[in-house]
Simulated scan of single mutants.
Amino acid sequence: MEHLPDHLLSGYRNFMGGRYSTETKRYRELAATGQKPMTMVIACCDSRAAPETIFDSGPGELFVVRNVANLVPPYQPDGGHHSTSAALEFAVQSLKVKHIVVLGHGRCGGIQAALDPGAEPLSPGDFIGKWMSMVAPAADIVANNSMMTVGERQTALERISIRFSIANLRTFPCVKILEDKGRLSLHGAWFDISTGELWAMNRQSGDFERPGNG
């Protein structure tokens, strides 16, 4: 009986014989004492932009939440189901992370969908369309800029949406209070899948710049 796809089982065997065997003590410590990551990363679901891989992180080092286009919705305590907000609440209030990084990436499918709102929905529910409507005002402005190429518009909105998500993070009282006290810092980053380049957002100007060792 096939319980999991063969490639997953093969990968698991490699993990147990490789990384787990060399980090067994670390995993057992984490199991016994719990996780205490200093950094939360809000990233995209895209399989090409995994934060743990990009930042070469070990077990217990990053608390990661992934959604379509790495968006953070505004603070909205309305009784609905809010996955990203729940993860944020846990990271800040329980784990007491010191940093939150919104990590975007090039060639993001969610951003592409936002730039083409007239495209046929993937399903009657149009969950992607509704989710990406959070950046619709910016998407409309960028999409109608005839001075930019298609690729430039894509990159522009990918980076604008990171700044948008950081602004939304500050609508959460727990985030704003801790940031004002200097106990929590917010960061933006953008990863280029094709070149491996990482661009970090300047926290004063909002510009995206290459870190010194990039």
Rank of each mutant, 00 (worst) to 15 (best):
I54S: 07
A86K: 02
H82A: 00
A156E: 15
D180C: 02
W199S: 13
S85F: 03
P37Y: 12
P5E: 07
N213R: 11
E197A: 13
G118M: 01
I193E: 05
C44P: 06
K25C: 00
W199E: 13
I111L: 07
C44I: 09
I162Q: 00
A136M: 07
N202C: 13
H3N: 09
G129H: 01
L178H: 08
Q76L: 14
A200D: 08
S205C: 09
E52S: 15
A200V: 15
P37D: 06
G182V: 10
L8E: 04
P211A: 06
A136I: 02
Q76W: 03
M134S: 15
P173M: 06
A49V: 15
T195N: 10
R107I: 03
K25Y: 07
L95D: 09
Q204V: 13
Y12Q: 12
K25I: 03
K96F: 04
G60V: 02
I193D: 04
D116K: 07
K176E: 10
E209M: 05
V97H: 11
A167Q: 15
R19Q: 13
T33Y: 14
L88E: 12
D126P: 00
P59C: 13
L184A: 03
L4N: 01
G106W: 09
M132T: 06
A119P: 00
K176G: 00
F55W: 15
M40E: 09
Q112D: 08
C45T: 11
A167G: 02
E23L: 15
S194K: 12
D78Q: 01
Q76A: 10
G125M: 10
P211E: 09
E2Y: 05
A139D: 09
Y12L: 13
G110Y: 06
A143N: 04
K176Y: 04
A138H: 12
I166H: 08
M134G: 11
G11A: 14
C44R: 08
F15T: 02
G188C: 08
A49M: 05
Q204C: 04
Y75G: 00
A50T: 15
V64D: 13
V41T: 06
K25Q: 09
H99A: 01
I177Y: 05
P173F: 08
M201F: 10
D78R: 07
D6H: 10
P74N: 07
G118K: 01
E89I: 12
E61K: 09
A189S: 12
R153N: 00
V175E: 07
S194E: 13
M38P: 00
H7N: 10
R48K: 08
R153E: 04
A139W: 11
E209Q: 07
K130Q: 12
M1F: 11
T39L: 10
C174A: 08
L62N: 08
A49R: 03
T33A: 12
S161T: 11
G196Y: 08
F63P: 01
D192Y: 04
G125N: 10
G58E: 14
A50W: 11
D126N: 14
I111R: 05
P5G: 02
Q204P: 00
R163S: 14
A139F: 09
G188T: 08
Q93N: 15
A114Y: 11
I166D: 14
V101D: 06
C45S: 14
L71F: 14
E197K: 15
M40R: 08
I100M: 12
L103F: 10
T149C: 01
R66N: 11
W199V: 01
Q35P: 00
